[in-house]
């Protein structure tokens, strides 16, 4: 297999679990993120776990000038170029209420930053005749709730973007998987109150691999979140607006 996987936001635990899966299948892996020391450690780990090669590369969703180097490094590999997007940030809603300027960073991290990156990558994928994009959206993007509606709005934007990108890449032979995780046991959710039915990053990574193989378009993980969100999306707005869930 001569595929390259770009992992954006590679220090996160979900990204680590996913990278180990693609490494196990012998892919070349580019770990893109801000903490280069940590990514170098992760790269060695992936090489031993079966990656054809693994490298750390600097990437900051808020600094589009960092994007070019990642893409040109990816282009050095032969074969398909794939990308998995794990970036995103979720400041507590009350912090945002106190300082609305935090909205900008949240939207860049969770939506516009990765979207700009993918927009630059798309023509290269088309030229190579396909490839896969895995985008981590969120169940929080399915409906705006009082607890995290800025993060939710950013993820909703990203999910819509992924839908459009899927539409574009399909004709070139590419595929886009939109992943909507429920609660995942990561540093982001560690110690937060109100967590239930929490999935492990390994379980999420395994379900993404399965979805890629089956060419699924949008998955909820764990699967039952599809039904939870089905219900939440169908609560009439005049009731929903009075609820606190």
């Amino acid at each position: 297999m001569s595929e390259t996987w770009i992992i954006l936001g590679a220090t996160s635990s979900m990204a680590r679990a996913f990278s180990r899966q693609v490494a196990g299948e012998g892919a070349r892996v580019l770990l893109a993120g801000r903490d280069i020391d940590d990514l170098k450690r992760a790269a060695t780990d992936l090489s031993v776990r079966g990656a054809k090669s693994a490298e750390a590369v600097a990437f900051d969703a808020r600094n589009p000038e960092s994007f070019g180097a990642v893409i040109s490094l990816a282009e050095k590999g032969e074969g398909m170029i794939n990308a998995a997007v794990f970036v995103g940030s979720m400041p507590p809603q009350e912090d945002i209420d106190a300082d609305p300027s935090l909205i900008d960073g949240t939207v860049i991290d969770s939506f516009t930053g990765p979207a700009r990156f993918l927009q630059a990558l798309a023509p290269i994928m088309e030229a190579r005749g396909g490839g896969t994009v895995v985008g981590i959206a969120s169940v929080a993007g399915d409906r705006g709730r009082i607890g995290n509606y800025v993060y939710g709005a950013a993820k909703a934007g990203f999910a819509t973007y992924l839908s459009g990108l899927r539409n574009r890449l399909t004709s070139a032979g590419g595929h886009v998987v939109t992943v909507k995780p429920g609660f995942v046991d990561t540093a982001m959710t560690w110690g937060l109150p109100g967590m239930f039915l929490v999935a492990s990053p390994d379980a999420v990574a395994a379900s993404i691999m399965k979805a890629m193989k089956k060419q699924k378009n949008v998955i909820y993980t764990p699967f039952f979140w599809r039904y939870i969100m089905l219900i939440i999306r169908h609560i009439p707005e005049f009731i929903f607006k009075k609820m606190s869930i």
Partner: peptide, 8 residues
Amino acid sequence: ARPERVSS
């Protein structure tokens, strides 16, 4: 605490 990186 459950750090995910050496730096944390």
